[in-house]
Structure formats: structure tokens, C-alpha cells
Design a protein around this nucleic acid. Structure first.
Lengths: 209, 209
DNA sequence: TTGACAAATGACAGTGTGTCACTTATCATG
DNA sequence: CATGATAAGTGACACACTGTCATTTGTCAA
């Protein structure tokens, strides 16, 4: 998290800094980004940067969280609108994200982010799918999910369902940037994989073999 | 790939360098690792490193590929032994990997690798699951898979099945390092998720709703 | 013995990081 | 209004690491 000083900044200066950081992380992935460039673009002295952030990771993850927040907040609403259907809700969210990624201004930031997705980033993005005890957002999602539809025997197991969907979703987003699929191809691939997940990868006929 | 010079090195010197690099990548993740440390440990001049590798990424990905090669090579054999059953084969491979990761000597290398897994690394690990046209290993796997068992209508769609399993598998491996599951917990989680994948996340009863 | 080619070497320029002593701004209080 | 305390701003600096390149050393065929 940024230091308190950052949040005390006048909005204009803060936004300017955010823009400069976004530009740098859009130009190159996190590991190649340099604070030197950010402060040059933001036109602030080097020392100031360290008043606001611990280091460049701090700045990057703050930005990422910001840009993902809306999707997380919406998810609960989308779930409700879809009568607790997890899959429909994920597909809607997937399309929302994809749409946002199309915007020229965001494209490179997210490309750099997703092609260098690691555990920490994934945690920020799927925020809370794995810490039911601490996260309120997660709890509110859990209560919305229509568990009756799911092929599980108790609520404990919902976590596995979420883990699976999250894994396949982030994997799809990653692949999209790597393979440069068109908007339509991306959605087709994702919905197909979601349908496979729903109905199972195995044929059900028990008489086989 | 390392430069030809690297492969011309006498085995002893090459192994010593490999060990030094492994040590450094076990100490810290790729982005924090330094060539300065590697050459110090390997006791070779800095310039020599650049005779052998393009940069530290080159060295890292070479090591990673080396350490993953056996699992990839075995997969085809394992598939055959399991009568083309993808899931059983993946579970076997998962356990093999987990076993290898337990070894003190490998533990930190793989921890650093998996917690910083990105697209490029995943490609090295799931090597070829997404480029059927070019990869021989992949072709040989494809012919072994018993497609009859799978819930798909043509061979084209196998790729999606593989993508899904690969996504869930790497996700599980990542989580293991992050959550520090025990060997048994890890296997239980994975086999459960695999069984969910097989039978589907949704209840089949069509009369619902 | 020589010459040509490959490999080894380490000094060096360039770039970036995080810190710290110092300066400037803000603001409550006597 | 003056003062002092606290917070924020600043940029020079020491340190670390990278990639290169001119030079040296080694190898081997003619």
C-alpha cells in the first residue's frame, strides 16, 4: 500500500503521478520499469517518490488493484442479476474485462500485467477467493452463489469450484494477450471452456469400457 | 538458449556454472537474481557469463527447462500405462512433480519459480500444449489420448481440454507453494479438483429450475 | 613456427536504486 | 505575530548491477 503521504496529496498532483506510473508500466513490464522514468514523467524529485511508495512494486500493485476494483465490486451484483449462476456471472465479468482491455489506453498496461502474471498478481485479481475467513467481499459472494446448481456436497467445496473457474479464467486472459485473439475468438474460447467445465470433461456414459 | 560456447565447455566447468546459477535462482526469484552473484559463486569472470548466455533470463529458462524435461518426456509413457486416460496421467505427473519439489535441494528453486510463474514460464512447463503444429512431443501425446473418454465432438477440441487441465494443474502447484500445503493435502486438493473437472461442476439433473 | 579463429578476461561506462541530511511548508499556540 | 514542532519535499550520493569491448590467451591446422 502507498504511504499516507500519498493520499494526502492534492488530487491533481496525485493523478499526475498515477498517470506517469501507468505510462511507465504500460511501456514495459514491472521488472523493466524504472522509478527514474516515473519521476521524470511525473516531474517530481526522486526523493518524493519514496515519500509516497515503498518501491515500484508498491506503486504497481496499487495501480493494478485500482483498475481491478470495479470488476470485483460488480461481481456480486452480476451474480444477483444471474440468479446466483456462477458461470453466467463469470462470463459476463470476462466480457467486461475484455472490453476494458480493448481500450487503447489500458491495453498495454494489462498486456504487461497479464503476460507477467504471478501469484501475487493473481491474488490481487481474484482477490479473496482463497481467504473466506477474512474477506467480506468474498462472504457476500458466497451467500449469493446458488449452490444447488453445483455438483458438490457441502459449502466447503465451493472453494474448489471457485479455484477452478478462477484458474481457467486467468489462464484465458493470459492466453488472449499472448495469442492476440480477436474479441470474438476470445469469448468463443472462454464460453466453450466454461461449458466444458459445467458439463464435465468426461463422457458420462458409465457403460463405456 | 545458451550460446554454443556453453555446450563446448568441459563438463566439470559447465556443471559448476549450472550449480552456481541454480543456487542463485534458489536464493531469490528471477527478478532479484544477479549475474554478479552467479559469476562470483561460479568463480568465472563476468565476461565469460556473456559468452555462455544472453542474459540471466536465458540462464534461468534453460535451467527450468532442464528440470522439467523429465516430466514432459515421461508423460507420454505414463499416458500409455494409463490406457490414454488423461486425468490419471496428470495426477501421476502431479505427484511426481510434488515428490521432486520435496527434495530440499530443489525446493527453493521451484518455489521461486512457481510463485513467479508467468506466461513464458508456463509455456516452458506445459511445453507444446498450445502449438500442435510444431511440436513433435505434443503430437505423440495427442495420439495416445483416449479421446473416446472425453466429452468432445472432434479432435480440435482436445486442445481445450488440455488447456483447462494445464491451467488447473499449474494453479494447484502455485497454490501449494503459496499455502504451504502438506504433501497429502496437496494431492487431496488436486485429485478432488480433477474429479470435479471430470464429472463437471454442475449437477446434471435437467429438471432443476 | 605461424597464422587464424575461438574463447577468456576484466576494466569501464552507463543506468538505476534507496537513503539521508537538509530545506521548505503548514499550522497550532502563547 | 512570532515561534516552534511536525510533516513534506528535495537532490546529491554511495552503492550495486548490467552489458560491452579492446585486449589477451588458447587451440589447432597448415
Amino acid at each position: 500500500m502507498p504511504k499516507p503521504t500519498f493520499f494526502n496529496l492534492p488530487k491533481k498532483k496525485r493523478d499526475h503521478l498515477i498517470q506517469a506510473a501507468t505510462d511507465e508500466f504500460s511501456r514495459v513490464p514491472l521488472n523493466e520499469a524504472s522509478i527514474a522514468n516515473i519521476v521524470k514523467n511525473a516531474d517530481i524529485p526522486r526523493g518524493s517518490f519514496y515519500q509516497y511508495f515503498e518501491d515500484k512494486e508498491d506503486a504497481f500493485y496499487y495501480l493494478l488493484e485500482q483498475k481491478m476494483e470495479s470488476h470485483q465490486d460488480n461481481f456480486s451484483t452480476i451474480l444477483k442479476r444471474n440468479q446466483g449462476d456462477l458461470f453466467d456471472s463469470f462470463i459476463t465479468t470476462f466480457i467486461n474485462m475484455l472490453t476494458e482491455f480493448q481500450v487503447e489506453e489500458n491495453l498495454n498496461f494489462f498486456r504487461n500485467a497479464f503476460l507477467n502474471m504471478n501469484y501475487k498478481m493473481e491474488s490481487k485479481i481474484t482477490n479473496g477467493f482463497n481467504k473466506p475467513k477474512f474477506d467480506k467481499k468474498f462472504e457476500s459472494i458466497l451467500t449469493e452463489v446458488d449452490i444447488q446448481k453445483l455438483n458438490i456436497k457441502d459449502e466447503q467445496e465451493v472453494i474448489h469450484v471457485l479455484q477452478i473457474i478462477a484458474a481457467v479464467t486467468t489462464h484465458n486472459l493470459m492466453q488472449n494477450f499472448a495469442k492476440k485473439y480477436s474479441f470474438e475468438e476470445a469469448i468463443d474460447n472462454y464460453t466453450f471452456e466454461m461449458s466444458l467445465l459445467k458439463k464435465g470433461l468426461y463422457k458420462e456414459d458409465d457403460d463405456h469400457k
